[in-house]
Design a protein around this nucleic acid. Sequence first.
RNA 1: GCCGGAGUGGCGAAAUUGGUAGACGCAGGGGACUCAAAAUCCCCCGGUGGCGACACCGUGUCGGUUCGAGUCCGACCUCCGGCACCA
Length: 872
Amino acid sequence: MDDQYQPAKVEREAREHWDANATFQAPEDPSREKFYCLSMFPYPSGRLHMGHVRNYTIGDVITRFERMRGRNVLQPMGWDAFGLPAENAAMANGVPPAQWTYDNIAYMKDQLRALGFALDWSRELATCHPEYYRWNQWLFLRMLEQGIAYKKSGVVNWDPVDQTVLANEQVIDGRGWRTGAVVEKREIPMYYLAITRYADELLEALDDLPGWPPQVKTMQANWIGKSHGVRFAFPYELDGEPGKLWVFTTRADTIMGVTFCAVAAEHPLAERAARDDPELAAFIDECKRGGVAEADLATIEKKGMPTGLQVTHPLTGEPVDVWVGNYVLMGYGDGAVMAVPAHDERDFEFALKYGLPIRQVIDVPGETFSDTEWRPWYADKERGVCVNSGKYDGLAYVEAVDAIAADLAAQGLGEKRVQYRLRDWGVSRQRYWGCPIPIVHCESCGDVPVPDDQLPVVLPEDCVPDGHGNPLARREDFIATSCPSCGGPARRETDTMDTFVDSSWYYARYCCRDNDAAMTDARVDYWMPVDQYVGGIEHAILHLLYSRFWTRVMRDTGLVKCDEPFTNLLTQGMVVAETYYREEAGKKTFFNPADVEVRRDDKGKVTGAVARADGQPVVVGGIEKMSKSKNNGVDPQALVERYGADTVRLFTMFAAPPEQSLEWSDSGVEGASRFLKRLWTLASAWREAVAELNGGDAPAPADEGDAQPLRHEIHGVLQQALNDYGRYQFNTVVSACMKLLNLLGGLEPAGPPWHARVVHEGLAILLRLLAPVAPHVTHHLWRELGYGDEILEAGLPEVDPAALERDEIELVVQVNGKLRSQIRVPADSGRDAIEAAARGDANVRRFTEGKEVRKVIVVPGRLVNLVVVDAA
RNA sequence: GCCGGAGUGGCGAAAUUGGUAGACGCAGGGGACUCAAAAUCCCCCGGUGGCGACACCGUGUCGGUUCGAGUCCGACCUCCGGCACCA
């Protein structure tokens, strides 16, 4: 055994051992309890970043822990390989996205291997492989047959200079990121998936996911946004024709307070009115400027303009003005809303701004109404009662809605309706590097699905995007084809699918990725659902909701048997680090933490920082998510080379619990490295003694000298660590390992023989506890000390209940809830004995003297609280 | 704007169900070893007062419930994630 811990050597040998034995290839074995552990697959961006390292370390610790528990564990890995960054890289370097992507995959795969993850590489997949994405296309065709996939128009960001569609990310302050041109909203035909058909099921089933974080379920429920309301119409007559302006409201009880209606800029009424009104036409054009992202639309200044048109209030018969509002969206409901300024805050502000009437129709007794200042009770449907509402006066929310809905229904002008905020999923992208949508356009037959036997529609891999539209649209060899229906000349669809499609079902394909005849097979039924899914909180809604939807479509198509893809979900926090910069002429130049030296005062508090290069000060800019733009990323590669994978994994698990954000600290890594060195040194010092004990019969637990209190502590720490493993709180597992090492560090190889027996037992516990976190060094030491060949098969250490027993326990004594003393009592003391001991304690007496003890609270095993008052 | 989350020593954090606030580690201070440095080992380490035993204060802010609140309730402040074409 080397005297010095040499991580590179230890880790290489361990990996060679695992590779040679195919240790992590997971067979389908119905006789064993399976555990499918999955981390969100990476986008092959070039190099691993710390977020990847953290994500995959968490997944790996769970994988190895569950395996040591005896389960048949599968942990696969693959590549979310289609996407925008590959096109951007292509524009920057002139390299085809395919080549850039494959190069990145090769590089990042080596990086993943160097971290020692227990991955079954035989199942590796990449979504840009035709063998994978053909099944996107195949299931898309099934969805077309079922009517789940359909075509309608949708709104996109249009860059008028580059003549191209932009992603929301590429729109900065309403302008194209490359051209700086003001972006326009443009309507184009797109394919949609009817996720709303499953809205109710996706919502209801959240209750059956106890293994998901409650906040994720809340976010999904709010996203689906089920609401009960009334859809009704304002009749009108225009150009001699009768029409109806349909709106939806959850506050039908306020309908008598409607003083105007607002429609979206794209609404037919708005467009009709703009024909005769150049000023309105200009306003509508203004509304169409800017991007389509909801966050932007929701924060813009609310603007409007009257159309000059009027509709009729369905209950009062009064005329109601119709306005165009830039905050009304054509994509939501009917693209029109009723406005009740008195009882909706947004309408209230709009009415004040444009001098529109405000009519109070809800009252709360004891409150006074002001038509110049908004008060929250105006929208209170719990306490509100109808007023100024004719026959509805005096009705509360529920009764008023019922009565009004009934009256509207009687006229054929409305009905109660359940509405969802969730919209159908638009999957068409006007982009090259994605899965082709399997449709052929024929002049005589229209849009024709590609027959199954002609799948996959293969994406040519040699295109280089240039920022001007989709290069696929210029590839005649791809586009020109014949119509599957009539055989005549036809053209292929050049839109590709949203990359969320690729990631909506990869977890199922890992189970059967070599099947080229079917999307899934019986192996999927063995492994699915995923038992533990691990990934970033930023995917809490979209990716996870799409996956839940896709699983249900697969279920209804007979492809899987489960309803939900992920039984348990762990959402890990971000990796963040300090930022440093200098500012010149309003432009910030960021310095990497590695190039900065931090200055501290004599208490260790940070007072400033200087650049290593020139010794001149830099600004300490605050903690931010690691990113290229802030230049605060720490390269995992360099750390692994310097300290070894075990140290990086150990620090990553120790610095914060998985769900919290993790602040990077170089000196913290040093600390982790120090711990492993100390472990090595201790194992090295005891190697002979422990190996000798391992060579004979299992030694009895030591009980001489101070062995008993020591074993009591060791098993107490073990109990806590096993519990923390069970709740996936790995930072305190690591801290338990550190405590164990500290305990064993007090023993001497030259000391009495029981020392060796405690170390033998303690190391057997410590190494197995640490094995999931630091697999290489524990693998090595386990063998070196003669415990066995394979620590992964050694099972988890078990708590010895006898070691935890105590004759005496310590209790805290409080007086009026304040800590005053501690007492030792026999473990089996009754309430009376404990109370007597507490009252008799000298320091307690100082606080009870001359007072009356009103009440004594005894919390078994914890504390005694004496409640005293001044004697009367 | 809307939805979700988080705030505890100089720093990362711990406190499992309302029961000893600060485990474990980092940084810092002191010491040992060394010609010296590095490495390693030992001691101290929330604030204020006290020689000390101890006492008072302290978990973003303000208020409440309770014998007892970091933990529960209400209001507020700050920061972070998501908002449907970044992944």
